[in-house]
Amino acid sequence: MAVRETHRDIDRAASEWAARQDRGPLSPEEDAVLEAWLRGDPRRRGALLRARAVSLMSESAQALGPDFDPETFAEPRRPRLSRRGMLTGSGAAVAAASLAAFGLVSSAAGAVISTERGEIRLVPLKDGSTVLLNTESRIRVRYDEGRREVTLLEGEAYFSVARDERRPFVVEVDGRKLRTAQAGFRVRKLDKAPVDLLVSQGRVDVSAAPLFGAGKVLVVSANTRLALADAVHPSAERPRPIAPEAVTRDLAWRDGKLAFEGETLGQAASAFARYSDTRIEIRDPALAREPVTGLFAASDPVGFSRAVAQVFDARLQKDGDTVVLSRGAQPPAAAQ
């Protein structure tokens, strides 16, 4: 009886194929062997796409570091904050200057801080907490002697909260209050989707939606996510535990990366659209349903598309700010 390959066996073979492709074009015989290998197990295409992603983008490969595990995408814990618009420096004087630059010591109405498409920004707060803003996000910060309050107006933010026994840290989003003494958590508010909370460290108390009883509190602990109900999304609110490696993938954007584990190419294309003016258009419905696995630079949809085209035997066309992926008999007008 044939022995089923392990994920590690497949990843090892995929890495070897990616290395061969990097050395130069495969011979017709090698192409035939590769195609036969890919057809042998549905997991192999995803593994090769992952290996190609690492080898095609040297910056991503270096950023993975020595702790990279291709099965879990477990990245080094230390964040790498090098994207445009991030604050840098050290010491209290630099932090104070940054706060003044953002207007965080101004009016009671609070300072509004935002990011543009493709920008990730680290915002230090006066108590030692920080907010990391993802692409196209806006927050309002209100700090005084009696409160620490941040309102997420739109987009996505990761909060690292320093303990302050006198003042709980409160994030307000769509009229709901998320309260903690000390935690690390992500809040996402995007159009046509319920507000999503993911707690990676500590505990966050969430005020219940009015339709589920005013005054009630939901407790969300580490490695748990919660979709917040509202009038548009009135489903019952149930905190859902998730695996630590899934938390790591969900938060890969903090390092300028997008991590996929079985999402369709169509879903991946939508994720890239948040970070770049370059759009990925998939004209073959069957191709759009193909699962994708890998870690990619969020700002490089073209590099992602090249990896997809190579692994899934698709064609790539560049039409202005659109990258078109297709399969079929007709030749492209301007293949690249």
Rank of each mutant, 00 (worst) to 15 (best):
T115A: 12
V105K: 06
A92T: 13
A93M: 06
D144H: 08
A109E: 15
V112G: 00
R140D: 02
A96H: 14
R140A: 02
D127W: 08
Y143M: 15
S90E: 14
V131P: 04
R142E: 11
L99Y: 02
S106N: 09
V112D: 01
S107R: 12
R138M: 09
L133S: 00
G110F: 03
I139V: 13
E116A: 07
S107K: 11
A108M: 10
G146F: 10
D144T: 05
A109T: 10
V105D: 15
S114K: 07
I139H: 02
I113A: 00
Y143F: 15
I120Q: 12
V94E: 15
S107N: 09
E136L: 07
I139R: 01
A111W: 05
R142L: 08
R142F: 02
A109H: 06
A109G: 13
L99D: 07
R142C: 05
I120W: 02
P124C: 08
R140F: 01
G110M: 00
P124L: 07
A101Y: 06
S107P: 10
E116N: 08
V94K: 14
V123N: 06
R121E: 01
T130H: 11
A108N: 13
V105L: 12
V112Y: 03
A100D: 15
S98Q: 14
S107G: 14
E116K: 05
A95D: 14
L99Q: 13
L122F: 09
Y143W: 14
V141Y: 07
I139M: 00
G110D: 05
R121W: 03
N134L: 08
G91V: 10
V105R: 11
G118I: 09
K126S: 15
T130S: 15
G110Y: 00
G103Y: 02
I113K: 00
E119Y: 02
V123M: 08
V131K: 01
L125H: 01
V131I: 04
S129N: 07
E119D: 09
R147T: 10
T130R: 12
G103C: 05
R147A: 13
S137W: 10
E119S: 05
A97N: 08
A100L: 13
L132T: 12
V123T: 07
G118C: 04
L104T: 02
I120C: 08
V105G: 15
G91N: 12
A108I: 12
L132I: 10
I113N: 02
V141G: 06
G146D: 15
G118K: 07
S98W: 11
V141L: 08
A101C: 05
G103P: 04
E136D: 15
R117T: 07
L104M: 09
A97Q: 13
R117P: 09
V112S: 10
A93C: 03
S106C: 04
R148Q: 05
G91E: 11
A100P: 06
S106V: 03
I113P: 03
R142Y: 00
A109I: 04
G91F: 08
Y143H: 13
G128S: 13
S106P: 03
T115V: 10
V105A: 15
E145M: 12
A108V: 12
A111F: 05
S114N: 09
N134A: 13
G128E: 13
S114P: 07
L122N: 12
G91I: 11
S98R: 13
V105C: 04
G110N: 00
V141R: 01
I120E: 07
A109Y: 01
A92M: 09
